[in-house]
Design a protein around this nucleic acid. Sequence first.
DNA 1: CTGTTAGCGCTTTCAT
DNA 2: ATGAAAGCGCTAACAG
Lengths: 352, 352
Amino acid sequence: MTKRYRIKDIAQMAGVSAGTVDRVIHNRGDVSPESRQKVEDTLRKIDYRPNLSLSSIGIKKRYTLVAILPQFTKGEYWEQVEMGIQRAVFEFSNTRLKVRSFYYDQFDLFSCRQAFNKASSLKCDGVLIGATFHDEAMHFTSQFSNRGIPYVFVDTYVNNTRPIAFFGPHSYLSGYVEAKLLLHIIEPGRDIAIFQACRIGNESSTQTISRKYGFMSYIKEHSPETKILFGQYYNSDIPASYEKMDRFFAENRNIGGAVVFNSRAYIVGSYLRDRNIRNIRLIGCGTIEPNVTLLKEGYISCLIAERPEYQGYMGVKTLLEYLLYNKQGEVANYTPIDIIIPENVDFYLEAK
Amino acid sequence: MTKRYRIKDIAQMAGVSAGTVDRVIHNRGDVSPESRQKVEDTLRKIDYRPNLSLSSIGIKKRYTLVAILPQFTKGEYWEQVEMGIQRAVFEFSNTRLKVRSFYYDQFDLFSCRQAFNKASSLKCDGVLIGATFHDEAMHFTSQFSNRGIPYVFVDTYVNNTRPIAFFGPHSYLSGYVEAKLLLHIIEPGRDIAIFQACRIGNESSTQTISRKYGFMSYIKEHSPETKILFGQYYNSDIPASYEKMDRFFAENRNIGGAVVFNSRAYIVGSYLRDRNIRNIRLIGCGTIEPNVTLLKEGYISCLIAERPEYQGYMGVKTLLEYLLYNKQGEVANYTPIDIIIPENVDFYLEAK
DNA sequence: CTGTTAGCGCTTTCAT
DNA sequence: ATGAAAGCGCTAACAG
């Protein structure tokens, strides 16, 4: 059983005072090279791992984090990320940690820029970003870097940036897994449909692109004869979506499987339910409520989930550990690709 | 953002002192009905949720927990449970919480009885049990109950007992899911083999029995024509196991899928590898190292995992919350039934 | 540069 | 039955 060492113990072992140990742990300077050496040796020897919850009690400095996230309504994907952020705030701080959130419309570049601008004008110690617009994220994170402000990405990693961490799915493998599952559950010889949002002008998110890439790679490798077709839906216009799908399925009568690379699978799923179509297997992402309902009703066969709550929680925790202890871990942290089916969904949602 | 209330705040709101609030929270008596009422109203109003990590700092009383687990060697299933226990000990206590572990041979009734006897002779505040022998567990837990000592089960629930909590898989559904997956990946028309340990005298564990039941129910419901055969292996005699399997597969030439209802899938999997058999899909339980290796090599198609680390962690946490706050939550806590395939296993293992 | 010390929120002893 | 106050391990201001 690992003994727990107190700062006082460490101080004694290193032959210095508690204050000096604390200065070393928090990299707060004013320590002679010899003292630092002795303390660091001791810390290494006992494999000292600071306890955030305990640290927070004594902390006098106030930390402000900024979160920049797509706006969400109740039950949506990003709400779960936000819940993880809140859990971390609750667990680690005793009101000395504040998170100020800024939300943007993930389909509106201007609103995203606005959110970043507002966030940038704020004095803060760290930033948590749920990015959908690649270029904006690149631009503003380089500003944060210049000001020495650490930032983390959740859900989506943006290339050519230097976050202290990323928590999210490996999108390529995520899509790869979806293809594997779909091929196993559709009737042989049937076609596959990929459903994507109809965007006004703007391109798909990087997430979606690499998921699609992973998905198509698997199909090409394992079942090159399977035909892939592309369908569309509108994010917020159900009647128009249904019309589009009516035409799509009328034109493509051999479809036996479908996939949606984001949490909007419920749009396609409810279409299948409302049109009473039962011979198409649908796979989607995210255990948000409408998806789960359709999963239980059998109109969605399988959901891929990426622990959004965990992403938010870890994002905050990582920023905090960086700020308090200068602790730097792995940058890329891929979340598990959880496979959710009607038989295991309840236990999945219940587990904290 | 949820404001964090201090004991002092609660005291002020209820019009009493911090001491009284603490006495109510810890159910420590010496509080007038009126004061108790006022405090409890306030606690409910603000949805007070105590922070274990913070509580532990001030606690003077020493708690001793006893864990009674099947003995394990490095890399086995129960080691992961033990790791969860250690994580909880590290996180929540500042050396005031001790866990004394007792191990028994899960195939030897006498050794189990001995472990329980030794554990019972110890003065302790709570017990965590990984049970494999039903009757022994029943007998000794009733003793704990009589002495007013709370206990939790991990991995296996034992009927006719009154633990304060159980953390483990819903074995029936677990088997049910395994059948669903296996039916999806085997070639149509092939038979299925269930592999079980050859036990000396003693019956299978309750876990295994209800998994088998779930498995067979699914097959009966969804593919009654599929033939199910029963194979055997020895827990610790590889050559004898191989011989048995040689005969088994020689006699049953149409087997296309196999399942093992515990973490010994690697025995069958390595047989398939060593005999270069590639047309049999194998499903097993537990992401222990040999299983993971065979999964990546393709000799195991899929593993079902039940978060053993989480079980151990939650077991200790639950006991502690009960001891400190008299907090009673759900008794039955089913862990997610995680579906692990070669493409998602690495991320699964990395996530904490 | 370093040790001392007050203070954080929570628990618990001790007068009252 | 209750409040005041001391103590837990950790942080950080302060005096030297």
